[in-house]
């Protein structure tokens, strides 16, 4: 029989604590997989990476690698290629966070009171779950400047409007060049932001969950006091959404700063390096220029930078964000 000692103490009043039944029933067996996994995928790579970043390893002969200390990290300070990549990533990230979260919030507000809410949430979330290499390639074709359907539709619309205006006497009223999207330095990043808009379903779900947990009593009280829709949104809903907003800003920002798939698949010569993002630069340093140690130093520096940003933002947000909205 598997009956074990049951201890009851004032501290555990109402709770029952059993001794581990036997060696096979230890807590450690439940924790061990996670512990090993965490060490294997986070701990060891970080330590090993930091160590290798202080050598001049070329990725081939580990035996010939010499210790160089912090040289790789100091070299980062005047590596203009890397700085440019960081700048590109940062510009893209800011634009991306802003536009994606705006759309996500709008979607969440539209879904919030819908009658078949789950169904609508699924529809808007679907692109997020479908997006991968396949959808980047689909978008690349959609935005193809000469034969893609986006520019063709735009051209058709402009043509129709012009024809209408010409009929009442204005010749060549609208005379604009269609954007070259991924084939021009100035429009490549906006094109990528547009593609990312399509995936706003992820942050939308976070906003939606937060919206559904807002306290309706406060909103109701404000309405009885005569507050209009806009006023209620900014003064009642928005403060309750701030925790979700902080979470979304941080996760989307960190994800955008290490965006790899799209720039790797979609960069081309006519962009003049506009999609040369940090992660792509690191990948090329390692696998195309064979400077493994230096690429590791770049990875670690960017990781530290991002972690610092997040911690700083969280500390700053603590002053702004109220987490408890119970009416008691």
């Amino acid at each position: 029989m598997r009956w074990r000692t049951i201890r009851s103490s004032p501290a555990h009043l109402g709770k029952i604590v059993t001794e581990p039944a036997n060696r096979k029933d230890r807590t450690i067996w439940f924790v061990a997989p996670w512990l090993v996994g965490f060490a294997l995928m986070y701990g060891v790579p970080l330590v090993y990476g930091c160590w290798l970043a202080m050598t001049d390893w070329d990725g081939i002969a580990l035996g010939k690698a010499g210790w160089v200390g912090l040289d790789n990290f100091t070299a980062l300070l005047d590596d203009s290629r890397f700085h440019q990549a960081l700048e590109n990533s940062l510009q893209f990230s800011i634009l991306n966070v802003f536009s994606q979260l705006l759309l996500a919030l709008w979607l969440a507000l539209m879904v919030r009171h819908a009658r078949r809410r789950g169904w609508w949430a699924t529809i808007f979330y679907l692109p997020h779950l479908l997006s991968g290499v396949a959808t980047w390639l689909i978008w690349a074709w959609l935005l193809n400047p000469s034969v893609g359907p986006v520019n063709r539709s735009l051209a058709m619309v402009i043509h129709t409007i012009n024809a209408g205006l010409a009929w009442i006497g204005f010749e060549h009223a609208i005379d604009i060049d269609l954007p070259l999207w991924l084939y021009a330095p100035e429009s490549a990043r906006p094109a990528l932001v547009l593609m990312n808009l399509w995936r706003a379903g992820g942050p939308m779900l976070i906003f939606l969950a937060a919206l559904l947990r807002t306290n309706p009593a406060i909103d109701e009280a404000a309405m009885l006091d005569g507050a209009g829709r806009g006023r209620r949104f900014w003064s009642i809903t928005m403060p309750q959404l701030l925790p979700a907003l902080v979470f979304n800003v941080l996760t989307v920002f960190v994800a955008s700063m290490q965006h790899f798939e799209a720039p790797y698949l979609l960069s081309n010569w006519s962009q003049n390096g506009a999609l040369q993002f940090a992660t792509l630069e690191i990948y090329q340093t390692a696998f195309e220029r064979q400077r493994f140690s230096y690429a590791l130093a770049q990875s670690i520096a960017l990781m530290a930078l991002l972690t610092g940003c997040c911690v700083g933002a969280l500390i700053a947000a603590r002053r702004l964000v109220r987490y408890d909205f119970s009416t008691e």
Partner: peptide
């Protein structure tokens, strides 16, 4: 402490960790 590590690993920059992981 371990749960703190779990939360930390949720927001870890995975694409930057991939190079050290590759080496492991």
């Amino acid at each position: 402490v371990c749960f703190g590590l779990v939360l930390l690993s949720i927001s870890a920059p995975v694409n930057l960790l991939i190079l050290p992981r590759f080496l492991v």
